[in-house]
């Protein structure tokens, strides 16, 4: 296992694109958070708003780059035929897959931590200038606040879960463009579709089950009673999607000819 891990780490480290994707992910996350926090305003005391969530909104964009990274780790091996070498060197396919999952999770967790903490810092810097001050009922963002800490740790976890979900889907689909299409559809479409579903029960169900709308409830720090699903359960729903994708990935990888 350690040799497999070492091999995967070498593959990831010696190609330029993963590093650029991770840097891009950090930049995109922080940029969107900065943009969003500089357009929201709080005019007077008692204005609503979830400052933690505003600061972490960049994750909605950052996850797309995490998905590309995870997809490329798999599909580039298929498109170049490298997968045959990999599986010849390490015939235990589950081990290969686990090694890939661990390396990708590791780098995404590190880059995700940087991206999420930087977003929070940006929010902490910008939001008070937009009127989100202590006198308006919004204390300065701080990890000492339990809910903000939960949102921060949850967002990092969410990014790693998206990486795992993408890995699983990429193994099943193999083609990179189609995998990315499937993943982004799974993430971005349900919140849009939920708007046109007239039946409130179906709408609610979709919000509870969709990987993005359920998982990102972990970022909420206000109006916790009006969330479609409670935060940890929401992240659990995303984890269930990732687990299902990984399981199908393992099954397909073991049973299918590479």
């Amino acid at each position: 296992m350690s040799t497999a891990l070492h091999a995967e780490w070498t593959k990831l480290r010696t190609v330029a694109s993963p590093l650029w994707l991770l840097l891009g992910m950090i930049a995109a996350t922080v940029a969107l958070s900065a943009g969003a926090t500089s357009v929201v305003t709080c005019a007077a005391a008692g204005c609503g708003g979830d400052v933690t969530r505003y600061s972490l909104i960049g994750v909605e964009l950052g996850q797309a780059l995490v998905a590309i990274l995870a997809v490329l780790v798999i599909s580039s091996e298929y498109s170049s035929g490298m997968i045959r070498t990999t599986l010849t060197a390490v015939p235990r396919r589950t081990t290969v897959f686990a090694a890939k999952a661990i390396t990708v999770t590791g780098v995404v967790a590190v880059a995700g931590t940087i991206a999420v903490l930087a977003s929070l810092l940006v929010g902490r810097f910008i939001l008070p200038r937009q009127g989100f001050t202590a006198s308006h009922g919004h204390p300065v963002l701080s990890l000492a606040d339990g809910l903000t800490l939960r949102a921060t740790a949850g967002s990092i976890l969410y990014l790693t879960l998206i990486a795992l979900l993408s890995l699983g889907i990429a193994v099943v689909v193999r083609d990179s463009a189609t995998s990315i299409g499937v993943i982004l559809g799974l993430l971005y479409l349900p919140p849009i579709l939920a708007q046109v579903i007239g039946n409130p029960h179906w709408q609610h169900l979709l919000q509870r089950l969709a990987p993005m709308s359920a998982g990102l409830t972990i970022q909420a720090t206000t109006n916790l009673n009006s969330l479609p699903i409670c935060p940890w359960a929401g992240l659990g729903a995303t984890a269930a999607w990732s687990a299902a994708a990984l399981t199908s990935g393992v099954v397909v990888l073991r049973t299918r000819d590479a």
């Binding site: 463009a177 299409g181 982004l184």
Partner: peptide, 13 residues
């Protein structure tokens, strides 16, 4: 393709 697909979907959606 992965980069192209993501860029365009992210830009529109």
């Amino acid at each position: 393709s992965a980069g192209a697909v993501t860029t365009v979907i992210a830009a529109i959606v």
